[in-house]
């Protein structure tokens, strides 16, 4: 199912949460809504679920306008940040809930519900835990129950609000892979909200980056990382050194640092340089190396130029020999994203 969001606006009192958001989500896609807190990403997700209603604009599932349809009518699966499991029900009853509340002919038989619960608990690798209560499960297991419960109703779209936010780092990584696996197995259109760019880039087919209630860019992880559409995206996605300087004749300069900025008008500008875009070059600007730390195959280098600009550099382990703490290295910038200030 495709989801079309057209010019959606929403404010809470005087605080604008969404300011004219438009977005198309393709059938079977796994999309991340990425942004800092307060960017409107959760509001957008809740508007898609029917848990909030827009002040203006339209939301359509395929060709059907669902802008003001209640949550119960939409057929969405929603996984809440704190899971929102029903504490007084067993895991199996939790998963069965969405089928249990159906009425008349739409309600499957008891046996069919039990089979579906079994199938889903196996899918999320919780087979055999159906009789437990949520209070008897770990955080990661609760998360899986929430996922199974949302999938049990065969939702037209699966929505997840910061699905890994409340988990510790190790569990988070393994569940990320699992979500991808489950998405690929079910093929259901999936949207998840996160403030963690690493999570978004690793997991999603496409990433929509929100800031102050508007979408700054939508694209594949490679697109938003390598061709950021705005200074905000550039600073938010991936690591970057930020330099303030001036463009003159297609070249950006900040102190001794210079880099080509084709197509950028003359005047004040800001440049973002990824840590791996610095290279050793005898003709380059001088930087005093302060600290070198080795992490696996990479060397992280902290340096400062003669103009006092601080640099974060990432070099391969093989290049690490060129950077010695206390020495001076001559560097040049391979590529930068330059925006008029």
């Amino acid at each position: 199912m495709t989801i079309s969001i057209r010019q959606v606006e929403k404010s809470f009192g005087r605080y604008p949460a969404l300011g004219g958001v438009s977005l198309e989500i393709k059938d079977g896609e796994l999309l991340a809504l990425l942004g800092p807190s307060g960017s409107g990403k959760t509001t957008l997700l809740r508007a898609i679920a029917g848990l909030e209603f827009p002040d203006k604009g339209q939301i359509a599932f395929d060709a059907q306008d669902v802008t003001f349809a209640g949550a119960a009518e939409r057929g969405v699966g929603f996984v809440f940040q704190q899971y929102a499991l029903f504490k007084h029900m067993t895991v199996a009853r939790n998963v069965a809930f969405g089928l249990d509340v159906r009425k008349g002919k739409a309600k499957p038989s008891k046996a069919a519900i039990a089979a579906r619960v079994e199938e889903l608990l196996n899918l999320v690798e919780l087979g055999g835990l159906g009789k437990r209560y949520p209070s008897q499960l770990s955080g990661g297991q609760r998360q899986r129950v929430a996922l199974a419960r949302a999938l049990a109703v065969n939702p037209r779209v699966l929505l997840l609000d910061e699905p890994f936010g409340a988990l510790d780092a190790t569990v988070r990584k393994s569940l990320r892979k699992e979500l991808r696996r489950i998405h690929d197995a079910t093929g259901v259109t999936t949207i998840f909200v996160t403030h963690d760019q690493e999570e978004a880039l690793e997991l999603a087919d496409r990433v929509a980056i929100l800031n102050h209630g508007v979408i700054e860019q939508v694209g594949t992880p490679a697109e938003v990382h390598d061709a950021p559409a705005s200074p905000f995206v550039c600073g938010f996605v991936g690591e970057a050194n930020r330099f303030e300087g001036e463009v003159s004749g297609g070249v950006f300069r900040a102190g001794g640092i210079g880099v080509a900025a084709p197509g950028v008008a003359d005047g004040k500008a800001v440049a973002f340089v990824r840590p791996h875009e610095f290279v050793i070059a005898p003709a380059g600007f001088g930087a005093h190396i302060q600290r070198v730390t080795l992490q696996g195959p990479l060397a992280h280098v902290e340096a400062v130029t003669s103009d006092g600009i601080r640099l974060q550099i990432v070099a391969s382990r093989a290049d690490a020999a060129n950077y010695a703490a206390g020495a001076t290295a001559n560097l040049t910038v391979r590529a930068a994203h330059v925006y008029p200030a």
């Binding site: 029917g50 209603f53 306008d65 003001f68 349809a69």
Partner: peptide, 12 residues
């Protein structure tokens, strides 16, 4: 289909 918001839905 209009999105004029004439029908104000009830929250969950």
């Amino acid at each position: 289909m209009s999105s004029a918001g004439i029908r104000k839905a009830r929250l969950a």
